[in-house]
């Protein structure tokens, strides 16, 4: 069945759509667009839609990926045009390309993600001081965060192996963090966990919450946007 790869942004009100609701939103948009969605067989058929990596509620996504399968061949340009017009506020379709049936699943390719996080600080440091803080944070032998299992038990987890890059700089009183973090079914790190650990370690204090954005999804070899098609 013909398969299409979609690059889209999730921003504005759509930042707050949960992953489960996002799947529904895409299926509904495809139906409104009049596309012949392919369904799985069985008692509870569902649309053949697969996403590269779930995004935390509240985090914007600038270049997200999902695949959809259709029952018949339609030019990618037509899919893109009709689907773009059927997306709700904040879900912005950037590009659609056909992909080979044999192409590996998105989830199998994604290895890491690039994030930015911004917040105002109560006592903003100098850029040099901030650099030393980042260096000493990354020099720690392990970076432990607390996670809850599904049963509610707390356990400590070392996220250091999954931090591929972290940098920070000040823009007046705004701190801007950029991070590259392990993403996928194993060893996944949430950007919020990293920020919480860094803020605790650095003693810095934010005014309000961080504004988070996932800039890109990456494979082990580079940016997905360059590799996927």
């Amino acid at each position: 069945m013909p398969r299409y790869r979609m690059m889209y942004a999730k921003e504005g009100p759509a930042k707050y759509i949960s992953h489960l609701d996002l799947i529904r939103a895409f299926e509904r948009a495809a139906r409104r667009a009049g596309l012949p969605i392919a369904f799985t067989r069985g008692f509870n058929p569902h649309a053949k839609l697969s996403f590269a990596a779930p995004l935390a509620v509240g985090t914007a996504g600038e270049a997200e990926f999902a695949d959809i399968e259709l029952d018949r061949d339609i030019p990618a340009g037509v899919v893109a045009k009709s689907l773009a017009a059927a997306m709700p506020d904040g879900l912005r379709l950037i590009e659609v390309r056909p992909v080979a049936q044999s192409a590996p699943a998105l989830m199998a390719i994604v290895d890491r993600a690039a994030y930015t996080a911004r917040a105002a600080l109560i006592a903003p440091p100098q850029n040099e001081t901030l650099q030393r803080t980042v260096d000493s944070f990354l020099a720690r032998p392990e970076i432990l965060v607390e996670r809850r299992s599904k049963t509610g038990d707390k356990r400590k987890c070392d996220i250091k192996p999954g931090i591929f890059a972290l940098s920070a700089h000040m823009d007046n009183d705004i701190i801007e963090l950029a991070a590259e973090l392990k993403t996928g079914s194993s060893g996944n790190i949430r950007c919020e966990e990293l920020i919480a650990a860094f803020m605790e370690d650095s003693g810095l204090c934010a005014r309000g919450n961080f504004v988070l954005s996932r800039r890109a999804l990456l494979s082990a070899g580079g940016n997905l946007a360059d590799l996927l098609w």
Binding site: G12, P13, S18, G208
Partner: peptide
């Protein structure tokens, strides 16, 4: 936005639906 990042199911309050 700051409030929405701290509440359960923020999509209840954003509007902008289809």
């Amino acid at each position: 936005e700051n409030i929405l990042s701290q509440v359960k199911k923020p999509a209840r309050y954003t509007g902008g639906e289809w």
